[in-house]
């Protein structure tokens, strides 16, 4: 590590030497938490947007199982009704084979999904920005056959966004706690330095140094420590995020969209070391000036 040489040999204090490490850990945790919050935000936006543009319409299986022909006619009528609705971009009946294939792992190899009375699903894609009158559509479908339901994923979406918001809040709380912890650590380190260098500080005072001259020495030391620690810690966090993103991609596309940070989000993460540096330097300055006023 490079040594700075000020009028006060602050670089040699145990507390000063630990400061870059401590700030490094803080930056690491804060940057990681912030990245998590940002990834979640983008993720929940994408997911929510993906769900917003779609509806699922469920036609329950006919009570009379053998009325296969009537059931198919009902499906066609329902599909036509949906397609006629303004604001609907496309509507397709989910093929029965596809549904059975989806069910197969749940039922085991032996069972034949064909034996099950499956409801039929119509996947609806809405035109972006169009408001669809769901109540009217519901009434029309109800008229075709009772029991047809429309799922606009609203409840699911609401729960998802609530959960994501809670996670983000937790992440931001971590960032706030780290900032507070940084303030406390810098106060401790600075007080340690003030105590260890009482004599040098008194000498500087006696030969005519202003408080701000002495404070500048501490600020310089803290700035140096914060730059080292902040950059190293944030760098480690960035590396971790990239690795986690690769890891998530390797597990397969279970999740809608990769867990990666967008360029704008990276900029936000970069504010972590800068904020830590500013917080650290201002805290050091305040601590020193407050202490010096009490000296001769």
């Amino acid at each position: 590590m490079a040594k700075r040489r000020g009028d006060i040999p602050l670089g040699n204090d145990p507390a000063s030497r630990l400061l870059p490490w401590i700030i490094g850990f803080m930056a690491f945790i804060a940057a990681l938490a912030l990245s998590g919050a940002l990834v979640l935000a983008a993720f929940s936006d994408r997911w929510s947007a993906g769900l917003t543009g779609t509806l699922t319409i469920q036609i329950p299986p006919p009570a009379a199982y053998d009325d296969e022909a009537g059931f198919e006619a009902l499906q066609k009528e329902a599909l036509a009704a949906v397609r006629r609705t303004p604001g609907v971009a496309s509507a397709t009946l989910l093929p029965l084979d596809e549904m059975r294939a989806l069910l197969k792992p749940w039922l085991g190899a032996g069972a034949d999904p064909r034996d099950l009375p499956l409801p039929r699903l119509i996947a609806v894609t809405l035109e972006a920005g169009e408001d669809v009158d769901l109540a009217d559509l519901g009434r029309r479908l109800e008229a075709l056959a009772p029991g047809i339901t429309i799922d606009d994923h609203g409840l699911w979406r609401e729960r998802l966004t609530d959960f994501m918001a809670a996670l983000q809040l937790a992440a931001l709380a971590v960032v706030a706690v780290v900032a507070l912890a940084a303030v406390v650590m810098v106060i401790f380190a600075t007080r340690g330095g003030l105590l260890a260098h009482r004599e040098s500080i008194e000498l500087l005072h006696l030969i005519g140094a202003h408080d701000r001259y002495i404070a500048a020495q501490f600020q310089g030391q803290t700035l140096f420590a914060a730059i080292k620690g902040g950059i190293a810690g944030t760098g480690m966090a960035a590396g971790t995020v990239v690795l986690l993103g690769h890891g998530a991609a390797a597990t397969g596309a279970v999740l809608p969209g990769a867990l990666v940070l967008e360029p704008m989000a990276w900029l936000w993460v970069m504010t972590v070391p800068m904020a830590l540096i500013v917080i650290a330097v201002l805290t050091a300055r305040r601590t020193v000036v407050n202490a010096l006023v009490r000296m001769v």
Binding site: P9, H205, L206, I207, G208
Partner: peptide
Amino acid sequence: RNRLPELRRKIGVVFQDFRLMSHL
């Protein structure tokens, strides 16, 4: 207090124990 530095700059002091800064 904020005028003390100006006054102190006009005073030269030789301390009995020198008080040189050891790292300079």
